[in-house]
Design a protein around this nucleic acid. Structure first.
Length: 498
RNA sequence: GGUCCAGUAACUCAGUGGUAGAGUAUCUGCCUUUUAAGCAGAGAGUCGAUGGUUCGAGUCCAUCCUGGAUCACCA
């Protein structure tokens, strides 16, 4: 700490010296005629024309050499070398140059030329400071060895990278790319849906009741209404109200909050896409999901087959569709289609699958699926027809009333989407929610609560509807080949430092 | 929450019980085409925290904090 304040003190002293020279270290006005990449892309032109250019950026390297100096300036578009001569700048301006630190923002006027070593550079005629750095930025050095870029003293501490993301972005340009891709993916999803006539909407994040998923909510309080409100755990129930209201295709991409554990796949706030299409069922939604993800990969990554952690994921071939019960039987030889609670429970006990006391038959089946099947689904697979009792918002399968018309999409052993033929029978829906409420009384803290306002809306009539939810962060992890959700969320939740 | 691993200078790291180290960064000096610039010198640390063992602890032990991996949990 002592040492750090020394470093900080030195910067503040330099700041004062700059002010004493009559220079404003934080001026309001800036002039820039070119980005650095402009200069690089039209290198030949600027070398020939010797035209005067003004560039801006952050000082990221400095090699002073008596009465001359070399420096590297970086703007968002790229980096370029500056060549600075005392006899070119003049006494006063060179005095400023000598007071600069790495991390300062500069406006540099000059012209392009090649150094003796052949490096394309800007010969500075005037340097203006645009913002003084007061805290040393960690230095990462790069050297080109046999055409390969080697990095030294990389800013690599994972904890620091997440806690000080601005430094991570500044010092690790490849990290920035994750977030550029993130933006492109989300934009492409919007394009895809907009083109198909979906309307993007915004529904409440603060909700008097929460629903649409099994999860523990965050609770907050509204002072003037004097009521507790919940941060939404899903978007579902409000979007369905919009389908009741006559919109036929709606979607929302937004933050959702679940008050649960955090790990490489879970952040307490995450981005969810939900969409609802009237007069569609879960088969239609499977087609839509497949097209959405394939076309996003094609548009953003320009690929139909991607590589994730060394594993090829093929989005191109028609995606496998298999029912949960069939998959379980294939993997285990055990047939659960009779829904015999005792028999299935015995199987779970024998296989060492732990079950909560409040578990229903459907939960047992799901547990078997998760234990034996899930991780084996590497190529995109729609797992269809879930037990009805764990799918309280999905319509029953007409061929088997124990099952619901629901699918989840699995890729590389992880869940990417969850969708149903939505239940639009208000009486059935009430019974299902009341069954959930009963589970809740028995101690299942994640069971749904009864949302009377939602049930009332269904009584006015909701058309047959297909609905879909996709975890956007996980999709971005897949597309950017990252195994931690923290790598695709700019400011992931961290415990406060003590 | 369980298990394992890590935490030493601003950054990257070395240091297996005996005087806290290196490179980079910073500061001073020299240097008019360098590029991980160079040369010479200097300053910089509550070794994550708290206890303990010991003549002596960065090092061994315990507890805690933070992060990571993994398992459990979790649509």
């Amino acid at each position: 700490m002592e040492n750090l304040s020394d470093l900080l003190l030195i910067r503040r002293q330099k700041l004062q010296k700059i002010i004493d020279l009559g220079i404003n270290p934080f001026p309001n006005r800036v002039k820039r005629t070119h980005t650095i990449t402009d200069l690089i892309e039209h290198k030949e032109d600027y070398l020939k024309k010797a035209e005067k250019v003004i560039i801006t950026g952050r000082l990221i390297a400095m090699r002073r050499q008596g009465k001359i100096g070399f420096a590297n300036l970086m703007d968002e578009s790229g980096k370029i070398q500056l060549y600075v001569r005392k006899d070119e700048l003049g006494e006063e301006n060179y005095e400023l140059f000598k007071l600069l630190d790495l991390g300062d923002f500069l406006q540099v006027a000059g012209s392009c030329f090649l150094t003796q070593r052949g490096e394309y550079s800007v010969k500075a005629e005037n340097i203006k400071i645009l913002g003084k750095n007061l805290r040393p930025v960690p230095t990462v050095k790069e050297k080109i060895v046999a055409g390969e870029k080697q990095r030294y003293d990389e800013f690599a501490d994972i904890e620091l990278r997440y806690r000080k993301r601005y430094l991570d972005l500044l010092l690790n340009p490849q990290i920035k790319q994750n977030f550029v891709l993130r933006a492109q993916i989300i934009r492409e999803i919007r394009n895809f849906l907009d083109k198909r006539g979906f309307l993007e909407v915004d529904t409440p994040i603060l909700q008097p009741l929460y629903g649409g998923a099994f999860a523990k909510p965050f609770v907050t309080h509204h002072n003037s209404l004097n009521i507790d409100l919940y941060l939404r755990i899903a978007i579902e129930l409000y979007l369905k109200r919009l389908i009741v209201g006559g919109f036929e295709k709606v979607y929302e991409i937004g933050k959702t909050f679940r008050n649960e554990g955090m790990d490489r796949n879970h952040n307490p706030e995450f981005t969810l896409l939900e969409l609802y299409e009237a007069y569609a069922d879960y088969n239609d939604i499977m087609d839509l999901t497949e097209n959405l993800i394939r076309s996003t990969a094609e548009k953003v990554l320009n690929k139909k087959v991607i590589n994730f952690q060394g594993q090829e994921i093929n989005f191109n071939d028609p995606w496998r569709r298999a029912s949960m019960l069939d998959l379980i039987e294939q993997e285990t030889g055990f047939d659960v289609s009779d829904f015999d609670f005792e028999r299935i429970k015995t199987f779970c006990d024998k296989k060492g699958i732990e079950i909560e006391p409040s578990a229903t038959t459907g939960k047992l089946i799901e547990a078997i699926f998760e234990h034996f099947v899930e991780k084996k689904l590497i190529q995109p697979t729609f797992v269809t027809d879930f037990p009805k009792d764990i799918s309280p918002l999905a319509k029953a399968n007409p061929d088997n009333p124990q099952l619901a018309e629901r699918f989840e999409l699995f890729i590389n052993g992880d869940e990417f989407a969850n969708a149903f033929t939505e239940l639009n029978d208000p009486i059935d829906q009430r019974q299902r929610l009341e069954a959930q409420a009963k589970l809740r009384e028995l101690g299942d803290v994640e069971a749904s609560v009864v949302d009377e306002d939602f049930l009332e809306s269904l009584e006015y009539g909701m058309p047959p509807t297909g609905g879909l939810g996709i975890g956007i962060d996980r999709l971005i992890m897949l597309f950017t080949d990252n195994t931690s959700i923290k790598e695709v969320i700019l400011f992931p939740q961290m415990k406060p430092e003590k």
